[in-house]
Design a protein around this nucleic acid. Structure first.
Lengths: 192, 192
DNA sequence: CGCGCATCTTGTCAGTGTCAACATTCAGAC
DNA sequence: GTCTGAATGTTGACACTGACAAGATGCGCG
């Protein structure tokens, strides 16, 4: 019997932090509820009361990631930066929060219908579209028409670069940093 | 006792096929050696003799995917298509072989030092660079210099689009097919 | 023929996710 | 102040998984 109180106080936060750390070490697929519980110093079934599932825990982590990304994009937009800098922020977010970013793009492990996840994702997406100056009415599905082609290309570009960097298929050269690579790549877009 | 012969004859292939199917249904993370063995009609430990590990099986599947992609790129190049069509082929490959493509980009589950995987990956990458007309001497790491910025942008673009489509974040609009979306997006690149 | 080796099976072990039943603490109604 | 229900955390159990060891089977080559 330890002298630890029966109630943790902020277990949900502690579990999310431990999860992010564990994902950073071994990847989203290797996240284990029991290991997370162990690191938070609680019993193996405690996480279920906050996240029901392994899937629920990963979904909460992904939602948190989308929220962090949205906040980042809001900051650069508030700083008066132009559209291309949003892409740079996107790539920077991915390299600064690799665990969250990794979980955000493992749809097979997530509950795609979770309201919190959807809300956070929509918030970040809306910022990207708004930053590109695409009116709400023009955000339909047809990629070839209107402003969506441009936004889709830009999003694909920065998403692809972020993914390639996280997967280690692309690394900054000597004397280069992530932002420089991101700027060099976004400069290749037609409108820039 | 069934009348099935003790030796399967082509178990390795059968295991790869069953794996691709299973990955297509439940994603790479949920691939189970025992389930694969069950579908191939062999005992639960049989896969270990061909792939040693779960990691080994996924690595073999990824290598096969890179080989398929390289073959696809070679075909479109042999057809005399220009560079942008390589990107379209990249996206088409991803949508036509979703299971292989999914495994190819889950580095946490793969053995990144596997010679077969590296060879297949290099072969596909070489085709992309050659298609862009970048000389071998100019394929260094510095993204901002020389031809690599263009290739990196193009690769990021099509990779990002393929990923976004596979993850369901982007779908072709009504009356659109994947190739049309891919062409609309690649057209946004500066050189096209 | 027989012998070595690749192939496949069976049995076992620790670790995991999930569920059910129970213990402890909190917060509000009276 | 006390009672009571809900939230939070624990313990125990079950089926499933990956991995390993030991043995069975059959192929190929001397």
């Amino acid at each position: 019997m330890t002298d630890r109180p029966y109630h943790h106080g902020n277990l949900r936060r502690a579990l999310l932090d431990a999860s992010a750390q564990l994902v950073g070490e071994r990847g989203p697929a290797a996240l284990s509820l029991r290991e997370v519980a162990r690191r938070a110093g609680v019993s193996h079934a405690a996480p279920a009361h906050h996240f029901t599932d392994r899937r629920g825990l990963l979904t909460a982590l992904a939602a948190e990631g989308w929220g962090l990304l949205a906040a980042r994009l809001e900051d650069t937009r508030a700083a008066g930066a132009e559209f291309a800098e949003l892409g740079v922020s996107y790539v920077l977010f991915a390299t600064e929060h690799p665990a969250h970013f990794a979980v955000m793009r493992t749809p097979g492990l997530l509950d795609d219908a979770d309201p919190d996840l959807l809300a956070a994702r929509d918030r970040a997406n809306a910022l990207l579209y708004a930053g590109a100056g695409v009116p709400e009415s023009d955000r339909g599905l047809a990629a070839s028409a209107g402003g969506r082609g441009r936004v889709l290309a830009a999003w694909s570009l920065v998403h692809g670069l972020a993914v390639l960097m996280q997967e280690g298929l692309v690394v900054p050269g000597p004397g280069e940093d992530v932002a420089a690579v991101a700027r060099a790549v976004t400069a290749q877009l037609r409108d820039a």
